[in-house]
Amino acid sequence: MGEDFLLIILTFDATIRVSVPLILAALAGLIVERSGVIDIGLEGKMLASAFAAAATAYTTNSAWLGLGAGVVASVLLALLHGFACITHRGNQIVSGVAINILVSGLTVLLGVSWFSLGGQTPPLTGDARFNSLTFPGAEAVRDVPVLGPIYSELLSGHNILVYLAFLTVPMVWWLIYRTRFGLRLRATGENPAAVDTAGISVIRMRYLALILCGILCGIAGSYFSTGHGAGFLREMTAGKGFIALAAMIFGKWRPVPVLFACLLFGFLDAIAIRLQGVEIPIIGEMPVQFIQALPYILTVVLLAGFIGRAIAPKASGIPYVKEH
């Protein structure tokens, strides 16, 4: 096995790395949509925090301060979304589109103005990045067959945000299903009038959900520029926010299935490059673009109800107005 096995391990390793922002952003989307707010601005929030994190990390030489700045930027955008579509009952899709466009321009505009590198930040080194954590004994067991590479390559050697992202899944699950907040959150997305008559503020619930969404997107964005990469590049989130949206739908708004959807989409991303020009038995040469488009195609097929039904929270997308 030897080499093939290592290749598989490395592919899974890459899968984990590219899945991290998907997991965080998809869970962020899950939380807001469970509260009844559609957020197609996940992409914009991640991009903004990627920039804020890189710029701050470069200036302060601290990845943690960068993360803080990334989260703040993302939360501010989430609150803007809330201001537009909760407080002023604007269209949630339009607001999301606005944020995506705004951020796409603003990050480059500020980048050019501050760093004069055509929209990039200077490369980050040392403490300005989240460096890989090596598990104890990772080097020692590297040559142990099977378990060695799994431990030293797959499990060990990621930066802390990777572990944080995977930890977020059970945390969100617990929050949604096991806490008072979660119960109210799920109710708000299904029947806000029931929440209102129970003496709970729908507006407050939705703002809280947006803040959580902002925090998670902020971590995801920071990961792009200070964890996975080493600095900000223009449009560096490259549509991952929409893949996360797709994964959220694919996972039917439930944390664990969403995790697997993210891993599936991340895996497709990871193998796309490796499969380029490779002859696969029966299928022949798989166009890499097809694999790249597969998450979107799968999501459309799911939405069309051909592989199970994806039912969104009933009240999502509808501003809450008391009727009389």
Partner: peptide
Amino acid sequence: NSAFSPDLIVVIQGLVVLFSGALSYM
């Protein structure tokens, strides 16, 4: 003026969508 990138337009565009669209009831 090299202090500006053409992305200024994208920013203005985003703001127009925000104010004319999302915040149109404000």
